[in-house]
Design a protein around this nucleic acid. Sequence first.
DNA 1: GGGGTGAAGTCATCTAGACAACTAGATGAG
DNA 2: CTCATCTAGTTGTCTAGATGACTTCACCCC
Lengths: 248, 248
Amino acid sequence: MTPENAANARRLARDGVTLWRRIAETLRREILAGGLSAGDRLPTEGELAARFGVNRHTVRRALEELSLAGLIRIEQGRGSFVAEDVLEYLVGPRTRFSEWIRRHNREPSGRVLDLRELEADRRVAAGLGLRTGAKVVLFEHLGLADGRPISLASHYFPAARLRGILEALRAEQAVTRALDRVGVADYLRQSTRVTARMPTASEAALLEMLRSRPLLSCENVNVDREGTIIEFGLARYPTPRVQIVFEP
Amino acid sequence: MTPENAANARRLARDGVTLWRRIAETLRREILAGGLSAGDRLPTEGELAARFGVNRHTVRRALEELSLAGLIRIEQGRGSFVAEDVLEYLVGPRTRFSEWIRRHNREPSGRVLDLRELEADRRVAAGLGLRTGAKVVLFEHLGLADGRPISLASHYFPAARLRGILEALRAEQAVTRALDRVGVADYLRQSTRVTARMPTASEAALLEMLRSRPLLSCENVNVDREGTIIEFGLARYPTPRVQIVFEP
DNA sequence: GGGGTGAAGTCATCTAGACAACTAGATGAG
DNA sequence: CTCATCTAGTTGTCTAGATGACTTCACCCC
């Protein structure tokens, strides 16, 4: 046994907590205390190993823990970074979900998966307050944060009420700006309904999540300032990555 | 470099998939194919290492993956076992949530956390169709499966409608049997509402879950065969461990 | 300027070995 | 018989080192 190994074994015996847990806890506190801000790069694994006086593999175990907890993001060849959306540590019970999502959706990163006009099925019609078969515009969008998918949303708009919405979406590639273009300067979330379920294969692939992890499925209805329904949304979020606090 | 290392490195280069992923995938298929049943013990890490011709650490990485996915359960000093409730791999989209839960709750393992009469707050009163301040009986229960917590449920019963429910619960320590004792032979789930949120510190501790993982919070109303509301339940489930498929 | 090329830096995987922590069963003292 | 103790077997942690894979950037050539 090397001297270092012996010393660390004694330390474990004294404290009753494994080294990698102590290191993870130390780093977690430093991140949450604000010593490192979102997006900041952590020291390299080698530097951390030197700092804590342990082997690099021990540091890796600690970083893996923080990564699983969603606190950091590890990128091969680049480094480890404080995760941008550790909002779960910041938001209180009064935080509005809609505001949180809007902050994400305002990010320019994202990908349009589908955009077309179709006839509303019963579910969409009910959400929009239309009759089944009415013309609606579907805008399907994959939201990214730092290149990682965080939302898969299907937005349905009433084609008759929002004339030109298809073209506006095609031009803007974003919901808020497209709505602004057709005269809806502001809109509010009227209702939200959340369920959890397992992802389908394609959902899991798009959201880059394990099929064994649940998906948060969020249905919501948006209205303009006059209270007219202007959108029915169905968004899916990968749970380890996206975490939501709901008001009781 | 040892010959084994060199051979495995070549194999990696040829297939483009890491060894531990291949091993995890092989074991996953074997488990799902039914070669191993729920509760069965896997070979030891050493045996698996010999079988796949790799180092024990490589096998450990694969087992860790399966454990995170909820497929197996690793116990220090004992071995690795196929997880008992990998229901997410078995239930189809038509599976009824209530039936699944009932199957769990019928398990005798569990712990009563609280049992007392109190006055209904607005939320409970609304759920039970009573006025605020009406007497209700609270039964708080931690459900276990194989010694691991899977649900934290608060059951509220209308004291006036169900005379003797407090004593029945004290005697039976279980909801279904207590209801049977006070004359409710059968009951149905009238409504279910699910949200997801972050656990409080005490919830996370009771459910033995990470505070960074979301909690499934499930409100439901149960009625007897005549349609009378007999219970308002508020159950919380730890998401990595409990996974639910909802019908669309 | 544009575009390859190569080197340095960083994380990912794999091997090897030692010892600690824990479990379960055997053994033996009382 | 009961209970404590010992022991073998299994998983957990830590060290050490080699190599692969990926990113970035400086450099050079055209």
